[in-house]
């Protein structure tokens, strides 16, 4: 679907600087702007968590348990209320953004390295190399990701490192598939043939000529897989086999709030909405980047 190559953009470069062109397109793209704004806000919140959080997210107060948020008649002391152990919900939400973003970024980065390497190699060499790459992709796709992640976390214990590693090792398939076809198209281009004729070394060709031309595809997949990693972490934590408490993770907050689902449903609504908004924004950002960098005329 997203076999975008940037050669038309290169052609336009003669008329207008590609960067300015992109900026202009981005500015007009409402989805992209909305996604970009939200994601950068969340990133900022995550970075500045210690400054923004009104309380220590781990500090318990057993005498102030499950205080309701302001909009449900609670006090301003705890704007989003407190959880079952009297911890400030807003502070936990703010620190939770760190966990989600970090897992999303690092897991997607690991996946990107694995998937890109495989995809570019397969797409460039074709033949047997490509067959092996496609085989690996098939094997990976055949393994049920949620189950394997659950099993591995259960065997090795839940910690941030384990969760990130497992997700990183599981989410590379789309990178490989998309970059493989993108590379195949780039491979046909004249400048690659020229570089080969000029005797440029293979790593150099891959690094200098191929990679920059499949970058757009890479970024789009990166955002999608970030969202994927965040949603999977939340699901794992929700099932009790992800990040371990008392770490504030949004999935874990939903899991803990579930105890009072029938009576204090805001406990799951608040982190759920935060998760939803972040995922929505990342998806919009990804779609936006694809639209903006796509050649003219594509929808």
């Amino acid at each position: 679907m997203t076999q975008t190559i940037s050669s038309p953009a290169l052609r336009d470069a003669a008329v207008d600087s590609p960067f300015r062109l992109l900026m202009r397109k981005a500015w007009k793209h409402r989805g992209f702007m909305a996604g970009f704004l939200v994601v950068s806000t969340v990133a900022l919140i995550a970075l500045l968590a210690p400054l923004l959080a009104p309380y220590d997210p781990y500090k318990q107060d057993l005498l102030a348990r499950m205080a309701r948020p302001v909009f449900l008649g609670g006090e301003w002391k705890h704007i989003l209320g407190t959880d079952a152990l009297g911890r400030d919900y807003l502070s936990r939400l703010i620190y939770g953004a760190r966990v989600s973003l970090m897992i999303g970024l690092v897991a997607a980065a690991i996946s990107a390295v694995i998937g890109t390497t495989l995809g570019v190699l397969g797409g460039y060499f074709g033949g047997k190399v490509d067959a092996v790459v496609m085989f690996l992709v098939s094997v990976r796709l055949a393994l049920p990701a949620t189950l394997v992640a659950l099993a591995v976390v259960a065997l090795f214990g839940g910690s941030l490192t384990v969760v990130i590693t497992v997700l990183g090792l599981l989410l590379w398939d789309r990178f490989a598939v998309v970059l493989r076809s993108a590379t195949m198209q780039v491979r046909q281009a004249d400048y690659i043939a020229a570089a080969e004729v000029l005797g440029a070394s293979l790593p150099r060709i891959l690094w200098k000529d191929v990679l920059p031309n499949v970058m757009n595809a890479l970024i789009v997949i990166m955002t999608l897989e970030m969202a994927h990693a965040i949603i999977l972490e939340a699901a794992l934590s929700f099932l009790g086999l992800g990040v371990q408490p008392p770490t504030p993770s949004w999935g874990l907050m939903i899991s803990e709030g579930k105890e009072m689902l029938l009576f204090e449903s805001w406990l799951i609504t608040i982190p759920g909405i935060a998760l939803f908004v972040l995922l929505l924004a990342i998806n919009l950002l990804g779609d936006g980047i694809r639209d903006i960098t796509a050649p003219e005329g594509r929808n």
Partner: peptide, 13 residues
């Protein structure tokens, strides 16, 4: 009793 465990962990902290 995860909440009890967490409460105790908080006290140990």
């Amino acid at each position: 009793d995860k909440p009890l465990a967490e409460a105790m962990i908080g006290m140990l902290a």
